[in-house]
Design a protein around this nucleic acid. Structure first.
Length: 579
RNA sequence: UGGGAGAUCGUCUAAUGGUAGGACAACAGACUCUGACUCUGUUUAUCUAGGUUCGAAUCCUAGUCUCCCAGCCA
């Protein structure tokens, strides 16, 4: 265990860690076991980061372990493509699992457990159709009625269930239901389905099974099978907890080894125990959607360029956008864990990413919207090489050589013919420092026939050059530049938030969530890069000074055809005050 | 009289009958060859009404508001 994690475990005082500390102190548990149990029916998104960091993070902090378990009980919706993606994303976030498991590893256990419940008179085979079940269930405010099949004999139930398993019945014609209480206020207890018939091939078990267990049954028993001590899940499962406990307690795997012998025979470690489910509030972020269905719709309707489109708040999208695992972990740590539902401002996430990147990203210069600047008092063809620090605060980043010449590209924004109040950059007859060079004065503004500024002619004050006595002369502004003769042309994808409103799901303004998509979330520009940026490897991150953080696109970038994505801008108090 | 959960600075989150604290944001200033970073300072909160108590965010009573639940999804 890392020292930092030990400290963190001590510092983080959320209610989940509190419970765990108490359980350790009281001797209820001597080791902590958690699990992250996604269903492989889509890619992981920003919301999952919270569950991942919580489960894997807690296991690491307390010296326990965390399993990655694919909750694959609904074949047809699930896909090995997503399994691979999930594994990849969890590792990218910085975590590794004790064991990779699948709910399908326990299919035989679930089946035997169901048989046991039937023998104990706690489950029965029901012939009601889906519609009829709904009708019999009652409503939120009125109790349900018992199914006419509820009192079948144990022998009949056993026979029927075995024949369900044998594939004798059609999809939907029968279910196995827990016999609990049709009048329960908690609807989950009104004889919930344990098994349904679904003759669909499963990604792992093929067509070995015509019946598949339901979530509540499979999930509870999977946790028990793996000896999970603390089963952490989101708030909407709060009223499933009584059913969760019912399944664990009534099956009682620990006392019935015969039920899970098949798992032992398969060579899997099994020490069934009694898990405790604890619920916490999910992560909601403004300007984001975290519905798997909607995320899939964006991809399928080609509103974005795939699951890893940098505008997507999937983990893959965030990764391609240049967000860092450490930044994401910082966000989760900062938010804490509680049971209050909340929406986190997207700016908090951006802040966390900036904080990480500021410390870890080397600096480079790039010009996204070029304007030619000629230094008239330098000889034609003048060229020199200047040494630049790669990081202003950390010498460990070293230095690099940057070519400087008579003709430069500067940012069009950094010149104003009619400067607004408080403008610190270049203006006619004004002075500004060229980063790492010296102070230039704008002597002439060259325009084309339409009156557009096409070139600035400046003079460089030789006394203000680095190493000269006038080098520390104060000027208001410093701007960045790229030598026109040396700059490398690059495609830069300037990304912004995918949605233009804080709550895209809120359609009370009469617009659908699709109509809330920000059409300017992706802007592609042709930019000039200093060569030391262009030559980066895929996924290498930089701060382009004064612009923001950028990452070499992990799929499209090549040194001879650079492609960078804007991860996030720098904080800009000038723009914010309306300058 | 369905069941379950939750209400603390703008936002997240602590305080478990004993000084309402932290982080982020905001604002002001300092610094600055990045209008970044950093540093300093400031502002701002216990859902309401009663009650118990020397003392209540915390306990009690009554209310208000918000979220979740009627898949053979997870």
């Amino acid at each position: 265990m890392q020292r930092a994690d030990v400290q963190r475990a001590d510092v983080q005082r959320d209610f989940v860690r509190q419970i765990i500390r108490d359980d350790l102190a009281s001797g209820k548990h001597t080791a902590i076991r958690t699990r992250f149990p996604p269903e492989p029916n889509g890619y992981l998104h920003i919301g999952h980061a919270k569950a991942i960091c919580l489960n894997f993070g807690i296991a690491r902090e307390f010296g326990g372990w965390c399993n990655l378990r694919l909750d694959d009980t609904n074949p047809g919706k699930e896909d090995p493509e997503f399994v691979a993606g999930i594994k990849d994303d969890v590792r990218w976030l910085g975590y590794d699992w004790h064991e990779l498991r699948h709910a399908s590893d326990y299919f035989e256990v679930f089946y035997r457990a169901a048989l046991k419940l039937i023998e104990d008179g706690k489950a029965y085979v029901d012939d009601l159709s889906a519609d009829e079940v709904r009708e019999y269930r009652g409503t939120l405010t009125s109790p349900g009625r018992n199914s006419p099949y509820r009192d079948r004999s144990v022998a009949e139930n056993l026979d029927l269930f075995r024949r369900m398993r044998a594939g004798e019945f059609a999809d939907g014609s029968k279910t196995l239901r827990a016999k609990i209480d049709m009048a329960a206020g908690n609807i989950n207890l009104r004889d919930p389905a344990l098994y349904r018939i679904r003759k669909v091939a499963h990604q792992n078990t093929g067509d070995a099974w015509p019946i598949y267990p339901m979530y509540d049954f499979a999930h509870a028993l999977s946790d028990a099978m793996e000896g999970i001590t603390h089963s952490l899940c989101t708030l909407e499962f709060e009223d499933h907890r009584p059913l969760y406990d019912w399944c664990v307690d009534n099956v009682d795997l620990a006392a019935h080894p015969a039920l899970w012998q098949p798992v032992v025979d398969a060579g899997l470690e099994a020490k069934p125990a009694k898990p405790r489910q604890i619920e916490f509030s999910r992560l909601n972020l403004s300007y984001c959607i975290t519905s798997k269905r909607k995320l899939a719709q964006l991809v399928n309707e080609k509103l974005v360029d795939g699951w890893d489109d940098p505008r997507m708040n999937t983990l893959r999208g965030l990764r391609r956008r240049g967000f860092t695992p450490a930044g994401l972990r910082l966000l989760i740590e900062r938010l804490g864990i509680s049971k209050q539902n909340s929406v986190i401002d997207y700016a908090i996430l951006e802040g966390c990413i900036r904080e990480d990147l500021d410390a870890t990203a080397p600096r480079r210069m790039a010009v996204l919207d070029p304007l030619r600047l000629v230094i008239a008092n330098l000889p034609e063809g003048h060229e020199e090489t200047l040494a630049f620090a790669n990081h202003p605060k950390d010498e460990g980043f070293g230095t690099r050589q940057v070519s400087f010449s008579r003709e430069l590209w500067i940012e069009r924004d950094d010149f104003a013919e009619v400067p607004p109040k408080g403008f610190h950059r270049l203006k006619p007859d004004g002075e500004v420092r060229l980063r790492g060079v010296g102070i230039v004065k704008c002597e002439e503004v060259v325009k084309d026939a339409d009156g557009n500024v096409v070139e600035l002619r400046c003079t460089l004050d030789p006394e203000s050059r680095q190493g000269m006595p006038g080098a520390d002369r104060k000027v208001k502004g410093t701007i960045h530049w790229v030598s026109a003769a040396h700059g490398v042309a690059a495609e830069v994808r300037v990304y912004d938030r995918l949605f233009s409103v804080p709550a895209p799901d809120d359609e009370s303004d009469g617009k659908s969530w699709i109509e809330h998509i920000n059409p300017d979330a992706k802007r592609v520009v042709r930019a000039w890069l200093e060569p030391a940026a262009a030559g980066a490897g895929p996924e290498q991150r930089f701060q382009f000074e004064r612009l923001g953080y950028f990452v070499a696109d992990r799929v499209d970038h090549r040194a001879d055809a650079p492609v960078f994505n804007r991860t996030v801008t720098l904080r800009d108090t000038w723009a914010k005050q309306g300058g």
